[in-house]
Amino acid sequence: MKPFRILKNNIKDAFKSVFRNFSLSIASISCISITLALVAVAMLLTVNVEKFTSDIEKDVTIVVSIERETTEEEIQNLKAQIEEFENIDTIKFISNEEIKKSMSKESDELANILGQYNNETNPLLNEYEVKVKDVETIGKTAKKIKELEHVYSVKYGEGMVEQLVKIFNIVKKVMYTIVIALGVVTLFLISNTIKITINNRQRQIEIERLVGASNSYIKRPYFFEGIILGFLGSLLPILISCWGYIFLYEKLDGVLFTSVITLVNPDKVLLMISIALMIIGTVVGAFASYHAVRRYLKI
């Protein structure tokens, strides 16, 4: 029972210490809150940029036009051949009739022109709409499809797609760098604030050592105190990011500028970010204080 009683004392001491050193605790909690709020903003931005890019990437399609005289069986064979390529995600057949219908909807002028043709005389070609898994190698996949028999033409927005992929990759890299840099800054800020809190209790640690407290007995309350400070410090940024993001999401109706760019659903992202903030706060808090107190255990 003794170890449990000692542990209970350590946890109780940690709580007492948070309240007794109230102003320093508030300073630590505020510092943790500010840095974690920045981390939360960076995380939300990254998650959304990630979604924009993947949404747009998903929209990139290879349009495979099929030669006019191709039979039903040959069309099926072509599908099977395309599906065999590694990079293929989905493949969808669109008949020239369907294309005619959708084009007719775009403008009256087009509808008039296309209306002159019946099923037999439809000048449009049947198509396969192919979506790829990796947009970066879309060019290679398109080239392979182009070489297949009964393929009249292959279009995927050559040049533009590559450009887009390049830009997205740069944006992602910048976002990751910002998140990592903020993470490092957070580590330093939190651990330094907690160090200042502990430096003020140098005398207490010295006396604890002198009356015969073991190093682990002295360190444990600080470890728990770090957890408490980190946890409390993470609450405000969690509340702010949850409230702020839901507010923004509802205000913008879930889309940014155009319906192509949709925001990540709050249900999906906020729980994950809240847990991440809580873990960062408590783990960094605990280890920063545990590490800081070690300096004073050499008396």
Partner: peptide, 24 residues
């Protein structure tokens, strides 16, 4: 060793000139 010093300090009571009390 530093980490074992507590063992000896538990057998000794020390009174200091400056009392070394925790003010809080």
């Amino acid at each position: 060793r530093n980490s074992k010093v507590y063992k000896i300090r538990r057998k000794i009571g020390v009174v200091y000139q400056d009392y070394k009390l925790l003010p809080n």
